[in-house]
Design a protein around this nucleic acid. Structure first.
Length: 113
DNA sequence: GCAATGACTGGAG
DNA sequence: CCTCCAGCCATTG
């Protein structure tokens, strides 16, 4: 798979890299921002291949709409995701982001196009 | 090109 | 906040 060319994946990566340190974003918001609302699953799919992207993508800042770390099982080890978040002062409780509603970063609203 | 897949989501209960 | 359901769409076999 040539991720070198511009694609859905690369758009996702760009947005994810814009997520401020200590903040998190949802798959749906990212998908909507790149003009493909409803393609939230594709964002997750992109994250699945994000390890091949460069510069690295802070995939640990991307969670589902409930603030649940749905993708932690894709990290090695899974606890790494939580460790990275806590390292940014993001509190995690039982695989969920505490104060999620306040930490969530929405490109649509933050960047306001 | 059809069928299955998946780190999802919004609405309803 | 949780569960269940139907819809979502790029990528893969």
């Amino acid at each position: 798979m040539d991720l070198r060319d511009k694609s859905f994946f690369e758009k996702v990566y760009e947005v994810v890299r814009l997520i401020p340190r200590g903040r998190v974003a949802t798959y749906g918001d990212i998908a909507a921002f790149i003009g493909q609302p409803g393609a939230a699953k594709m964002v997750g799919w992109a994250m699945n291949a994000s390890h091949t992207a460069y510069p690295p993508v802070p995939a640990h800042r991307v969670v589902n709409r409930n603030g649940l770390l749905s993708g932690k099982h894709h990290f090695h080890p899974p606890e790494l995701m939580i460790r990275l978040l806590e390292n940014e002062n993001v509190e995690v409780d039982n695989d969920k982001i505490k104060n999620f509603s306040k930490l969530v970063w929405q490109p649509m609203k933050e960047l306001k196009y």
